[in-house]
Every structure is written in C-alpha cells, then in structure tokens.
Design a protein around this nucleic acid. Sequence first.
DNA 1: ATTTTTACCTGTCCTATTTCAAGCTCATTT
DNA 2: AAATGAGCTTGAAATAGGACAGGTAAAAAT
Lengths: 195, 195
Amino acid sequence: MEDFLPVINYVSRHIQLTDEEKSYLASLLRITRVKKKQYIVQPDFVCKYKSYVVKGALRSFLMGNEGQEHTISIAIEDWWIADYHSYINQVPATLFVEALEDSILIQIDYNAEQLLMETHPKFERFFRIISQRSLASTQHRMLSNLSKTAEQRFEEFETKYPKMMNRIPQYIIASYLGFSSEFLSKIRNNRTKKS
Amino acid sequence: MEDFLPVINYVSRHIQLTDEEKSYLASLLRITRVKKKQYIVQPDFVCKYKSYVVKGALRSFLMGNEGQEHTISIAIEDWWIADYHSYINQVPATLFVEALEDSILIQIDYNAEQLLMETHPKFERFFRIISQRSLASTQHRMLSNLSKTAEQRFEEFETKYPKMMNRIPQYIIASYLGFSSEFLSKIRNNRTKKS
DNA sequence: ATTTTTACCTGTCCTATTTCAAGCTCATTT
DNA sequence: AAATGAGCTTGAAATAGGACAGGTAAAAAT
C-alpha cells in the first residue's frame, strides 16, 4: 500500500477516507514504469487506464493529417493523464499519450473505477470534483485561445506553469499553445531585444 | 412540479429517480423568464444560478479589452448555461450570459445544488456524469481549434449543431469558432461559388 | 569516439485571417 | 413613412503566424 500513497493522498485532499476505503482503493491501483518516448496510449486502441504521475512527465497529443503534432495536455508530478474521450466512453483513442521522460505512474483501469464508485459512492464525489475543476480550467484555456495573442498565451503559460518551462521542450509548449515552434522562437527573440 | 418536468426528465436520462427525489429536486428549482438581450450574468457579480433552457436561446461571452466579444458557449432548448468558473467557485463572474431570444429558464442555485448532493448523494453521480461529458466535449473543441482551419471548424459546427445554424446570428457563431464575422461571410461566399 | 538525432534558432517568403470602411437589406421603432 | 439599428456582405490594405530551408549545439545512441 505504501506504493500507492501519492494517489491516496491526492484523493484525501478532496474527500475524507477511512482506512478501509484507502486499502480498497489501493487494491485497485497498479504501478507502471515507462521509458522516455514510450507511448502508453495510441490511436485505435482503447485507453484502458487513467494515469497519475508519481515521477516524470508525459503529454497527450493529436497527430494531424500533415504530421503536425497538437499537444492536448501535459502532465508532470501530481497530475493525471489519459485520452479522456477514449477512457470515459471506452472507445478507440484518437490521441497518443507519450512519456517525455522516464516516468513512474500509478494507474487505475476503467472497470476498477466503475466498481469503486458502485461499491463506495463517496468516490462519485471525488470524481465529480476533479471533473468540474478540469472543466473550469479547460474552459479557461479555450477562452485564452480565443481572446489572446500567441505572445500573451506564452506569458500566461510561463507564470502559470513555471515548473514546466525548464523541463518541457519548447516545441511541445508551442504545440500546446497553438502556434509553431519557430514562432515561439521569434517571440523569445523579440523579448530579449526589448529588455 | 409540472413546471419542472423538463429538468426532472433531463436528470432521469442519467440516473433513476424515486418520486420523493423528484419532488425534492423540484422544490429546489425555480422558473425565470427573460427577454431578448437581457443579461442573466454580468462581470463582477457572482453567478448564483445554473440555468436549464426550456425555451429560447442564450450565450455566454467574454468582452475583450478592445470590445471584441468571444462567445464561450451557446445554449438552446435542453442545454444548461452559466459562467461555470464563477458558479462552482462562487467568485465574481468574468463573463456575460445574455439571452439571444425571449427565453424560459429553470434555475438551480449553488447552495441548493450543494444541499441536494449532501442530502441525496445519488445526485453526485448525475453531476459527475454531466461534468465528464462536458469536459470531453470542451476538449474536443480545443482540439478542433488547434488542428483545423476556420472553414473546417465552421463545417463541423454546421453538421454538429444544425438547429443553431438557423437561429443564431452568424457573428456569434464566428466569435464562438474563433474568427471574425467578416471572414465567416467570405467562407460562405467562397462555397457558393464552388458549388 | 564518432555518428545520429533532437531541440532550438534565424531568415525569407507565403497565406490565412483581421481590420477598416462602406454599403445593403430587412426588421423594429417612432 | 421615415428613421434607426442589427445582421450580413464586399473589397482593399495590413498583420499575425506558418511553412520551408538551412545552420548550430548539445544530447543520445552506436
């Protein structure tokens, strides 16, 4: 059970858990180690697991028809990642989920999650809270994309996720913010001139 | 209670309700009528209610610094609308929610929703399911915005929401899809030439 | 130790989309 | 009946950001 403490703590930040609930939750989890560049989800395969990042970094992205990669989400320590559409509907994925560094993950599979909610309805609350939070933050991202320029979005990203700036390659950040890596390079260049 | 049947039916599509639960739910709802152009949410005021559209059409939008309107969501019959960030955190809104037609709404307020979940935990499940669904669809919208051209997004909108095409002004659809209304006009013009 | 690959930068040209300005049509108000 | 305003169109000029090509340095693979 010690192995799963990071997830148990994560859940405990949102709902109160008894010892029985903690160990039942732990019984449904598993640990996985992945190497840099390894895919844990691929198009056409159902995304069976939702992954909590204990150590490392991953991203989910869409491969466009002309080979352009569009990063949907980035996860470092204490974040979750999956192809959510594939996961919640248990249909084939459209995204890749790729390790950006050697990583350690704690995973829960779809059936276990359903079982968890059926036997312990308290977890419905947990999943509701985190879905609502991600919904609010995804909507905020939409809003930034609609109303801000590339440079403004980049600044917002820097202040919001300083830890990612050092670790995540810039071409991935660019593809997350919705512009080309060359353009990001130009933004940075302009800034050093100004200052 | 007849007045609230649309919402009771909506909820019943996702979870099974007893008669007691239905009438308790109904006791927490209220009906509101709004006229075209009326705001039901405004920046700096807390968004107290989540609104289900019985009849009519509304949108939520952000007013940019230079006066550009960015439409975040559009709701017609059988949709819900609110400034979600303001609603779930009970902090001042940043969005407007505006009636696009004379409308009839069924509303639930934040405290009633919390009470509902505490006294009848079954509703946690309902709110979880709909948050997850909106999360999946918001992520899909992000993905379209990142990977598709203006014309492709417009085509996607047409096939996905045909009912809105007839009712919602084009400048609002453009601001929802993330481009100018003039450009939408040009897209349509190009198409009639081709066909 | 050397070769290959990855991430990043820079310049030039290119295009999707914006901005501005004007005009048109239809519905609503007076 | 005139006036107003909302929504849509059109065209010309401007621009944010993209695509391409080439170059460098460091990291990773052999």
